[in-house]
Nucleic acid binder design. Structure first.
Length: 300
DNA sequence: CGATTTTGACCTGCGC
DNA sequence: GCGCAGGTCAAAATCG
């Protein structure tokens, strides 16, 4: 039918052992794994898995009210989350969160792509402006979504070119978190990649922002789309058993075109290890979700 | 030689 | 106010 069906599960390193789940909120959409282990991670994101109902409930309480400053489970931080990140988001449910993890919410700030220039880094002055702005204004979050992928490689190719601009060790996780930025100068999309502390085989990738351009093309043929791979597992029927906190996914991420991520680590560009059986997929204008969400799920 | 990665320092936000 | 943790910058190193 469409591209999605071209995905050959066997060509990927994705594990079919866990069912993948889609979730989201007013700030974006998220993809998660659905196993027990993964559900625990989900809770870190602000989602509660309800086995008895086989569904996920958003922990965040006030979706309508004041979401201006409501930060997403920002850090998909498996790690930060480990200590209660989820709650940081929903402030209510998680309970334990408050304790030792301020992380989740604060960090972001990616909304203002340039804010950093002013405040960040090693350059001392010139920070006042952004500071003032921050205090006076609410942050505007970029559309964001995250997904977990079972993969041996950390950086999953997705058709775009990324430049790594940082790496940080995260609390409660033996794995560092890497920060990437789209190499397109006009594009402010960022991406965070980290391994789940709970299951090292799982890579948690968080995208933030919208690409304002198409993919750079596929340098190599036959790449893998982990997203497509797992979304292919999300049959309409299986999806229907989950609860989506009412979001217009297509509205959430209107322009973002995220083509098939391919499991080709930037480092392993020349790696012969990765199976490459899928034909490259042409960029589409369907937008991010066009690649990730089964047609049956979209608002059309 | 240009592009990308590495890495230490710095900044910000939040909890105590 | 202090300390912690996450996020970003940018110089240096590395790669193609």
């Amino acid at each position: 039918m469409d591209d999605r069906e071209r995905v050959d599960p066997e060509a990927t390193e994705l594990s079919a052992e866990s069912s993948w789940t889609l979730g989201g909120d007013s700030d974006g959409a998220y993809f998660f794994g659905g196993s027990d282990r993964e559900s625990s991670i989900l809770s870190e994101f602000g989602w509660n898995f309800r086995p008895e109902e086989t569904r996920f409930d958003r922990i965040v309480p006030d979706l309508e009210g004041n979401e201006e400053e409501k930060l997403l489970p920002d850090s998909v931080t498996g790690s930060a989350a480990a200590s209660g990140g989820a709650t940081a988001v929903g402030s209510g449910t998680g309970g334990d969160a408050s304790a030792s993890n301020p992380s989740v919410s604060s960090s972001s700030s990616e909304d203002q792509p340039e804010k950093s220039t002013a405040s960040g880094g090693n350059k001392p002055p010139a920070e006042t402006a952004s500071k003032v702005r921050k205090k006076g204004q609410k942050r505007i979050r970029q559309p964001r979504f995250a997904f977990m992928t079972k993969s041996e490689v950390d950086h999953l190719e997705d058709g775009y070119r990324w430049r790594k601009y940082g790496q940080k060790a995260v609390k409660n996780s033996p794995f560092p978190r890497s920060y990437y930025r789209c190499t397109n100068s006009k594009c402010t999309v960022k991406k965070r990649v980290e391994r789940s502390s709970e299951d090292p085989t799982i890579v948690i990738t968080t995208y933030e922002g919208q690409h304002c351009h198409h993919t750079v093309g596929f340098p190599r043929g036959g790449l893998i789309s982990h997203e497509a791979a797992f979304t292919s597992q999300l049959t309409p029927s299986s999806l229907s058993q989950f609860h989506y906190p009412g979001i217009q996914l297509h509205q959430q991420i209107p322009l973002c075109t995220l083509p098939q991520p391919r499991q080709v680590p930037s480092k392993a560009r020349e790696s012969p290890l990765l199976p490459q059986t899928n034909p490259p997929r042409l960029p589409t204008d369907e937008g991010l979700l066009g690649d990730m969400v089964p047609p049956g799920m979209r608002n059309r």
